[in-house]
Amino acid sequence: MSDQHLLKSSTKDSDPAIFSETYSLVLLEKVKSERVKQALTQWIEEIRDWTSAKAYFVGHIKVFVEGQENLWLSSTGRSISSKQSQGWSEWSLGSATLFVTIIVFGTTKEALKETAEESLKTCFNTSLPNIINGF
């Protein structure tokens, strides 16, 4: 069965799974904002790879980091777009709020939540070990 056929089967007459969460990021020491961007980019890549491997269809993946500076990442399961406020690259981040919304067709809300949360934890622990509270 082709990928498109699989996708069509998995999306027909079905609502997508939605994962939408807000996290308070409190860092034990200040880090360059680019390290947080790298961790979140890796996270989106992992979600993208998971959907691709399972032949699910991505509605969208959106991430917004709100603090003294802002970062916006988005993807439809292909490339990852990135926009940031002017001072983002120079910012040393101590705390911020992380907003994420993922919409995927073909899977369940529970499976998406489990994958998204586990993957986020892994990405933060790998890129910023022992630095972010709660992950």
């Binding site: 969460e21 991430v63 916006w72 919304t101 919409i103």
Partner: peptide
Amino acid sequence: EVGETGID
């Protein structure tokens, strides 16, 4: 928007 967390 869809989802509990607005981003746009």
